[in-house]
């Protein structure tokens, strides 16, 4: 197991290096000179040359890349062109706000997804299966930014039960009243993982149910609930893999939902940075989100191997 973890960790290093190169390369592809974004068009040439040197843009690309990588690894993500504040501080608080949404959304989506998927598989072909499957496919087909608006229309505009946008607290919600602003974004975000997990769990549980050991368990006289436990344990690695991916999507993909609800998370930060052409913020947000995505997948791989020794080849 330790060798597996070590190998998997080593495997993540070239991927992260590749990610950093890709992001760096993408930023180089931005049309125009980055200095033009900082200075007014009528700036004197000496000033332009001075700024270019200060930012290191006059050095060869690979030198620029390595110095950027070195600073990033030390936690120095640069300064926002727009606000002048250190990017690391802005990003940390935004990421915290995204986690406040993503964690409950993931828990809700996964719980519903596993429940629906297992229910559908155990009642294959019945109306229960059909209803659960229809619910799941709706979850993956809904444009969630639209669903968010529909929820706002129903629960904020018409019923006036929940706030339409904004985050009613800082850090973590202190009371039920403060947590109300969480409800709509969390429900919206949980839809996609719910649908995806339900579909994968249904397919995997059906596959496991067809294996011979299940017939043996039944022949031994185990009741359904005991059989269910064995089956779920066998379906867990596949379900875990999907959950890891989905959690990563929640972190990186909540940008649309954060925009609708005006939630001050990392997605919103990225969106603002794009429209302000704030390159350091863009670069840092993308790299850090990708880093979390790789980390989550790494943890999932390790968890899978812990459950199913066959994976530790």
């Amino acid at each position: 197991m330790l060798t597996f973890v070590a190998r998997r960790l080593l495997h993540a290093i070239p991927i992260l290096l590749g990610v950093s190169m890709l992001v760096f390369g993408l930023v180089q592809m931005i049309p125009g000179n980055p200095i033009d974004l900082l200075l007014p068009p009528e700036a004197p040439p000496e000033l332009i040359a001075q700024m270019t040197a200060a930012y290191g843009f006059d050095k060869p690309l690979h030198i620029q890349y390595f110095s950027w990588l070195g600073r990033t690894l030390q936690g120095d993500l640069g300064y926002s062109i727009f606000t002048g504040a250190p990017v690391a501080r802005e990003l940390m608080s935004a990421l915290g706000n995204t986690f406040v949404l993503a964690v409950p959304a993931a828990l809700l989506g996964f719980a519903l997804g596993v429940g629906l998927g297992a229910l559908a598989a155990f009642h294959q072909g019945t109306w229960i299966d059909k209803a659960a499957s229809a619910f799941a496919i709706t979850g993956v087909s809904l444009p969630h930014y639209w669903f968010a608006i529909v929820l706002v229309v129903i629960f904020s505009v018409t019923l006036n039960w929940l706030p339409a946008q904004g985050m009613g607290f800082e850090g973590l919600p202190g009371s039920f009243a403060e947590a109300r602003s969480l409800v709509l974004p969390v429900v919206t975000l949980s839809l996609i993982p719910m649908g995806v997990v339900a579909r994968v769990v249904r397919a995997t549980v059906l596959e496991v149910l067809n294996q011979e050991f299940v017939a043996t368990l039944r022949a031994k006289g185990l009741i359904d609930r005991e059989v269910l436990l064995h089956v779920l344990k066998n379906a867990a690695p596949a379900a875990l893999a999907v959950m890891g991916l989905q959690f990563g999507y929640l972190l990186g993909g909540s940008i649309l939902v954060e925009t609708v609800f005006n939630w001050p998370g990392s997605g919103n930060l990225l969106n603002l940075a794009i429209f302000r052409r704030d390159v350091p913020v863009m670069q840092a947000t993308i790299v850090v989100l990708a880093f979390f995505f790789v980390l989550v997948n790494l943890l999932v791989d390790i968890a899978q191997a812990a459950i199913d020794p066959r994976i530790r080849r």
Partner: peptide
């Protein structure tokens, strides 16, 4: 496959937004 792994390290929507945001 190793190059694919790198692209895989981005959640799909983040990659789309990053590319569109940077290219315009």
């Amino acid at each position: 496959m190793r190059v694919t792994d790198v692209f895989y390290a981005f959640p799909s929507i983040l990659l789309a937004i990053a590319i569109c945001g940077l290219l315009g």
